[in-house]
Design a protein around this nucleic acid. Sequence first.
DNA 1: TATAATCCCTACTAATTCAGTAGGGTATAA
DNA 2: TTATACCCTACTGAATTAGTAGGGATTATA
Lengths: 148, 148
Amino acid sequence: MILSTKGRYGLKAAFELSKNYGLGPVPLKKISEKYGISENYLEQLFAKLKKSGYIDTVRGPQGGYLLAKSPEEITVGMILRTLEGEITTSDCLGKEVCSRESICATRVIFEKIEKSINDVIDNITLADMYEEQEKILSEGKNEQEAIS
Amino acid sequence: MILSTKGRYGLKAAFELSKNYGLGPVPLKKISEKYGISENYLEQLFAKLKKSGYIDTVRGPQGGYLLAKSPEEITVGMILRTLEGEITTSDCLGKEVCSRESICATRVIFEKIEKSINDVIDNITLADMYEEQEKILSEGKNEQEAIS
DNA sequence: TATAATCCCTACTAATTCAGTAGGGTATAA
DNA sequence: TTATACCCTACTGAATTAGTAGGGATTATA
C-alpha cells in the first residue's frame, strides 16, 4: 500500500467538495458520515489542505469547507502531496551513500517510477474526476447497476 | 517515500548478483560492505528472495548468493513485490466501505497510479538495468566523470 | 442575546512497521 | 580441523499510522 489513509481519505473528501463547488460550504460531519471516516481525523487532513491554500472554511452554522479554487485548478497531485508528502522512491541524491557505478542503474529505475506516478497525479484535476464519474454513472445505468 | 529500504537495498543487491551472473556466488559480506548496508539485514532480504525462487545459495567458503534465473528472466517488479508486498494504492475493493457513487472516481485514479507503476517495474529486467548502466558508464566517460 | 452548529487547535495513544542488532546453528572448501 | 559462509529466530528503539479526547473561537438564527 503506497498511499496511506491520509491521501485516500483526503482525495475522496476533496472530491466531495468539488462536487459542491459553487453551492456553498459542506460541513465536515456530512463527509465523515458519508464515508464512515472519523470526523476529527478528517479535520486534521483538511487543516493541511487549508494551509496549502486548496480549501477555505466558513465557521458557524451553515458553515463548512469549500474549495478555494475551481476544480479545474486543483490536481490530484496537489492533494496527495499535501497529505502524503513528496512522492519519492529513494533519497539516493541525498544522504544515502552512493557507490557510484552500481547505484546509477537502480536510480534510473526509481526515477522512472517516480515520473510515472507524477505524470498521472499531476495531469488529473478534480474536474476530470467529476467527468470520469459522470461517465461511470451513465454506464452503470445502462448496465442496470450490475455491480454490487 | 513509497519504497522502503527493503525494496531499495534489495534491488541494488539483486543487481549486484546479476552483474556476477555466470561467474559463481557472491558473498553477502562483499555486497553489504560495498553499499554500507547491515549484513544481517540484507541477509533477511535475501532469505525472502530465495524463498521466492529468484536466488540460490552456496554454503561454506567461496560460497555466497547467485541468481537462480538469468537476468533476462527477473524483473524489477519481481524483486520489489517480494520485498515490499503487492504494490497497491487502496484496498477499495476489499474491506473499505464504498459509498459507491463517489468512491468510483477516486478508485479510477488509484487504479491508474497502480497501473503506471506496474507498467514500469514489470517491463524492466535485471538485464535491462545492466544495459542501462553500460550506457551511463560510457556517457560518463565522455564527460570525464563530470558528476561527483 | 442565547444557543447550537461549525471550524480550530493541541495533546495523547495503541498498534504497526521500519531498520536494524544479537547470537546462536549448520554446511563445506581448503 | 578450521575458517568462511549461509541459516534462523528473537529482540528492540524509533517512527509512522490512524485515530481519540477535549477544550476553544466564531457566527447564523430563533
